[in-house]
Amino acid sequence: MLKLFKLFNNKRLFILLITLVLFIVVMGFSLGTRKGLSWPENFVRDTTGFVQNLFYKPAGYVAGLFQDISHLDELSEENEQLKIMMAQYTRNMAQYNFIKAQNEQYQKDLHFTKEQEELYNYEYHIANVVSVTTEPSNHTLVIDLGSRNGIKVNMAVTSVKGLVGVISQVSQFTSTVKLMTMMDDNDPNSQPPIAATALNKEGKSFGMIESYDQETGMLMMNKIPVGDPIVKGDTVISSGIGGLYPRGMIIGTVEDVKVGEFGLTSTAIVKPSAEFQDWKDLFVVFTAADAEESAGK
């Protein structure tokens, strides 16, 4: 019995020693430098990688989908902001262009009034067009100046380019302008004729702007005496004779000069300088007497 017990103890000791030796060998083998993995390690690693790959890719796709959706919301918001900014930019540019054009027009107006004032000492009151009537028998327009501004009937009205017409009716706040296109020497109710001369030929040239040809758009300067030096290309201006129209108002340019039927007078075909459309700023001409009377009110 004692021998068996000893033998059993020796076997346990032997197994323990064998296990310890194997453990040391395995540890040494695991910790040592190796060029490759063992087949169990390869099997475990490949299996684990395959399973992880099955779950990782779909999870990555789902996460990427939610991330893209989040980015779409951000892009949509940015797009809306850009649209608003573009609309604001367009509006600001339109306002800038309008103000710029208005400023340039005022610069032209200021230059015109200074130039004319130095030449003939007139006073110009700027007016805006309220309405336009284009009926053939009543070609008139309404401006936003009236009697409270010192406006009176028969005052001359001009644009930067040339004479437009005369004041025909006046109310407290507005006035009606009868245009030169209404001039007709056979109609006593039309705009009064204009005593005219040629620029730089004052005192040598004379005629009367009496009518407007509706078909050709030309003014007729009649009663030009024989030997008058007026020729094609001359600038026609008001002479100031008669007192109705201030002198020096630009009327138009001579297109042609034709001798009358009996050779006693000539007629000049004059192209108006003013454009009777697309109205912008107009000026009511105040002579020195008109200006003093208006200031005294």
Rank of each mutant, 00 (worst) to 15 (best):
V164Y: 06
G203S: 04
V177C: 04
I167P: 03
M183G: 01
S168C: 12
D187L: 09
Q172M: 13
L163R: 02
I167G: 03
D185R: 08
I194P: 00
D184W: 04
S190T: 09
N200A: 12
G162V: 07
Q169L: 13
S159V: 02
N200I: 09
T174A: 05
S171G: 08
D187H: 03
Q172A: 14
K161D: 10
D185V: 10
M182Y: 05
D187G: 06
S159F: 08
L179V: 13
G162N: 03
E202L: 03
V177E: 10
T174C: 10
N189G: 05
I194S: 00
K201S: 06
S171D: 14
V160L: 15
S205C: 14
D187E: 07
S159Y: 07
M182R: 13
V170M: 04
L199V: 09
S205A: 15
G165Y: 07
T158W: 04
F173R: 15
V157P: 00
K178D: 14
K178S: 14
F206E: 03
L179Q: 10
A198H: 00
M182N: 13
G165K: 02
A195E: 10
T174N: 07
T176C: 01
G203N: 02
F206V: 04
A198C: 01
D185N: 12
V160Q: 14
M180C: 02
P193I: 04
T181K: 11
G203Y: 05
A196N: 00
D187R: 01
L199G: 09
N200V: 09
Q191S: 15
D185I: 12
G203C: 07
D187T: 08
P193W: 01
G162Q: 08
T176S: 10
V166N: 12
Q191V: 14
M182C: 05
P188I: 02
V164Q: 08
N189T: 11
G165L: 04
G162K: 03
T158Y: 06
K204L: 12
S159W: 09
L199A: 13
S171R: 14
V170F: 04
T181G: 05
L163N: 06
K178L: 15
S168Q: 13
N186D: 14
A195V: 04
Q172W: 12
T158Q: 07
Q191F: 08
M182H: 08
Q172D: 15
Q191A: 15
G165H: 03
P192S: 11
K161C: 05
S159R: 06
D185S: 14
L199D: 11
A198G: 04
K178F: 10
M180I: 05
D187A: 02
M182F: 07
A196V: 00
T174W: 04
